[in-house]
Amino acid sequence: MLRYISKRLVSLSASLIVASILIFIVIEIIPGDPAAFMLGINADPDAVEALREQLGLNASLTSRYFTWVTGLLQGEFGISYTYRVPVSELISDRIVISLPLTFYALVLSTLIAFPAGIYAASKRNSLGDVSVMGLTQLGVAIPNFWFAMLLVLVFSINLRWFSAGGFPGWDQGFFPAMKALTLPAIALALPQASILARVMRSSLLDTLSEDYIRTARAKGLNRRQALWRHALRNALIPVLTIIGLQFSFLLAGGIIIENVFYLPGLGRLVFQGITQRDLIVVRSVVILLVFAVIAVTFLVDIAYAIADPRLREGSR
């Protein structure tokens, strides 16, 4: 188990390092000089040069990369070119919206998908199965930002149950904040839940046709018992992978959904960063999100090992 985990840890850290290099390079080739941008079109070239020096833009690529990475390791992301405040401050303000939103959506998606998938698989080919699968087919086809607009139209504008956007802040209390995140989370979660339910169903159907299910039935378990005791745990193994991937989808999807609901999250920060050539903000947010995805991948790997003894004892 330890060996497996350390192996995954090494491999994921390697991914993280390569990712950071890639992000750094991509951001470096963004056209436009941030110093010139900050000072406006008619700025004095000397002033621009001074600002470049001050921002550390004149150092060599490698030394800038290492300055950036060592800063990251100490939790210092640098100073935003446009806001003139530490990026870490900007990010910590925004991340308390984006991350809870992602997890909220992930929980919703799982809570909807598991029962739906298990129900459909256990009632295979029945009317219930066909209806659930038809709904998920529809769910997969709906763009989440459009679904978000429909939710606003129905629940905010017509029914007035929720506000159409904005975020009161966590200091206004847990429930008002969660309420503000509810519509965005639903909009994010439903299409993903559809995918997850379909994966759950097909994975369960696959395991239900395995030989060991027949063994379980020959022992005297009825269909239900065979499903719950033997099929489910085996079926979860591929489902875990999808849940891991969904985290990444939800995190990225959140960037767009935040726009629909005017939530001041990381997504809006990134967009502002891009339009204002605020490279430090952009690359800090991106590396942070990549880090979050890799961390979740690691958690999924551990969950794998718990679910599957073959991995746990691995290459013994």
Partner: peptide, 19 residues
Amino acid sequence: NDLIFAFPSLLLAIMITAV
């Protein structure tokens, strides 16, 4: 391949179009 999967897909798309 794993590396590309580790990037939130839309995020990378946004970065590319931004660049």
